[in-house]
Structure formats: C-alpha cells, structure tokens
Design a protein around this nucleic acid. Structure first.
Length: 148
DNA sequence: ATTCTCACA
DNA sequence: TGTGAGTA
C-alpha cells in the first residue's frame, strides 16, 4: 500500500475521469454523494486524482461484478475501522465513536488525527484490499470457505 | 464551453 | 441511470 502524494493530486476534470474510468459523470457524482469518493474542488469544479480513479474502479468491481448495491457498499465502507488501519491509537477521535460517520468527515478539524485530509489517507487506499476477500472471489459463501 | 445541482421518468 | 432545465 503506497501513500503516493503524486497519485493524490487532483488533476482530472469530471469528463476526463469519466472517460478514464468508463463511468458516467452522473454516476461519479452519485458515488460522491454516497461518500465513496471525495474529489477535490477547484473553483467549484470537481478534480479527480489517480487514487480517486482507482477507487472508482474498486467501486465498480463491487457494483458490477460482486453485485452489491450502493446502499450495501455504503455500509461496507463505513464499517471499515480506520483507527486500526491507521494504527493511530486515537480512541478519543470522533471517527472511533461515530459509527455512522465517514471517517474523513469525522476527523475534520480534529488535531488528534494524523491524517487531516483524504490525500494519502490509508482509509482511501485500503478499500482495494477487500477485493481479495474470499467471499468476493466469485466463490460461494458457505462451509466450503472454511475448509483446507 | 463546461460543470453544477436538482428533478423527473 | 440518462437527460434536461437553469446557473455559475
């Protein structure tokens, strides 16, 4: 998992991002509304980074291949324990207590958190890891998963 | 010219 | 989800 600042630079307009990800601008805004991505704003206009583009691919994987709904995916992402991933040890962080909050919203203006923005945030990047979970490999979910 | 939000089907 | 209205 890399925390590449370059990959976090907001450079693509929504049209370019749409083209590169094969996702309509309409849906890109929808994913943002759901809290999956948070592209930067320049003069009120969205600017997507390479990381954003990667997350969009990840979102499409769950939606298209796994067959999850946006609602289900929302629960899935929100359930991600950011304090473990970051290993920040900040149990007094709002993100630790507020189950329903997107962590990057909860940590806003929180001096205790070592990650202030989504740029280079591990929470953003870790989502890709879930692609490797057994239940998302197209295999059946059941007792067979626990053999071997 | 492009993007934004909101609304409708 | 795509499309159109009305802005900025």
């Amino acid at each position: 998992m890399e925390l590449d600042i370059e990959s976090s630079k907001p450079i693509f307009t929504i049209e370019i991002a749409s083209s590169l990800s094969g996702t309509s601008p309409r849906m890109l805004r929808e994913y943002e509304k759901a809290g999956f991505i948070k592209p930067a704003r320049i003069n009120g206009k969205r600017r997507y980074s390479n990381n954003d583009l990667q997350f969009i691919k990840n979102i499409r994987f769950y939606l298209d291949e796994v067959g999850m709904t946006i609602t289900a995916l929302k629960v899935f992402y929100l359930a991600t324990p950011c304090w473990e991933i970051k290993q920040c040890g900040q149990t007094k962080c709002p993100a630790f207590h507020n189950c329903g909050a997107k962590c990057w919203e909860a940590i806003k203006n929180n001096d205790n958190c070592n990650v202030r923005t989504c740029k280079g945030c591990p929470i953003y990047l870790v989502r890709q890891m879930h692609k490797n979970l057994k239940i998302f490999q197209g295999k059946s979910i059941g007792p067979k998963c626990f053999k071997e």
